[in-house]
Every structure is written in structure tokens, then in C-alpha cells.
Amino acid sequence: MLLTFLVVTALAVVRLRSLFAVVMLSGIYSLVTAGVFIALDAVDVAFTEAAVGAGIATMLMLGTLRLTGHRQVAPRHSPILPLLVVTITGGVLLWGTRDMPRFGDPQAPVHLHVAPRYIEDSPIEVGVPNMVTSVLASYRGFDTLGETAVVFTAGVGVLALLGIGGRRRRDTDGDDQD
């Protein structure tokens, strides 16, 4: 049911030309994805998806629209080649999933590698009830440090490119047209 809703939203995003509606639909898409994650019992991921995908990302897209304009320019080339590439890639991906273990299979490699050790030892070693937190913050502390550094770098990058109130100050100084 949720997945059907996702497909309908994605098709609407492809068909629409009004970028404002597309941004709103992509927010809805993120919210439905969060619902899918909740159905899969991945509450932490759903939390992130709802807050970042449906909240902040939608706001930033709207901020971008304010700067760029609301209508998508009609494409000049024919859609045959991109459609072909997408169809072939999708076909290859679908073909690749045939080798994957069945969904929820307890014998899948991902459930036999390090997960049993985390599940059995983290209550004794870390003692935090939310196992996701103990994996993220303790066992995989390096990865989370890297992610934090990535977020910080993104902020530095945006500041370096846009600055805060950057162009307005220059315009009030002189009457040059850039």
C-alpha cells in the first residue's frame, strides 16, 4: 500500500512541470518513505527521513526555488536515450536482486556477520537500551565522527559559496550590475 503510494508520487514528480508542486511531492515522498521504514521497524531511520527528507530538505528546495524560478524548462532533446538508460539500469538491478537472500531470511549473510555479537554483547559492554545508539556511537564511533565532519564540511562549503546575505551587501555598496 505504502509502496504503491511511493510509485504514484514518483510518477507525478516525473510528469509535473511546476517545480513548486514537485518540491511538495518530494516532501510527501520522503514522508511515505518514513512510513515504510516504520513498517520495517527501523524507527531511528524513519525519524531521520521524516526530519531531514520531509522537513529540512523541502525547506532548502523552496529556498532554492525562490532564487531560480518556478517553471521547469521543456527539454529540447528527445527522452528516448535517457529512458533507455534508465530501463536498462533498472533491469540490471532487478536481475541483481535475484541473488539476494529472501527478505527477513535469518540465514542471510548480513545477519550472521557482526550483528549477533552486537546483539549479545552490547547490553553488557555498553549497557545502552537502544542498540542502534550503541552501534552508532560506540562500536562505529569512527564512522559517526566522519559523518559529523561531513556535515560540518557541507556547512563550510555553503558558507564559502553563498555566504550569509552575501550579494545584498555588495549591491548596496556600489551600483555595479553583476
Partner: peptide, 29 residues
């Protein structure tokens, strides 16, 4: 340790998100 590093992550994420938002919204088209 987890409390401290989560605090670090939270402070960085909140300030970076706000900085990016302000950078977008204060820019004149």
C-alpha cells in the same frame, strides 16, 4: 562517552542546518 559525542553531533548538525538555511534565505535572487 556516548552522551558527550551525541551532544557534539547535535550541536554541529543544528548549527550547520541553520547556517545553510540562512545562507539560502538571505541571498537575493
Amino acid at each position: 562517552g556516548i552522551l558527550l559525542i551525541e551532544l557534539g553531533v547535535g550541536v554541529t548538525v543544528a548549527s550547520v542546518m541553520l547556517v545553510i538555511f540562512f545562507a539560502f534565505i538571505t541571498r537575493e535572487p
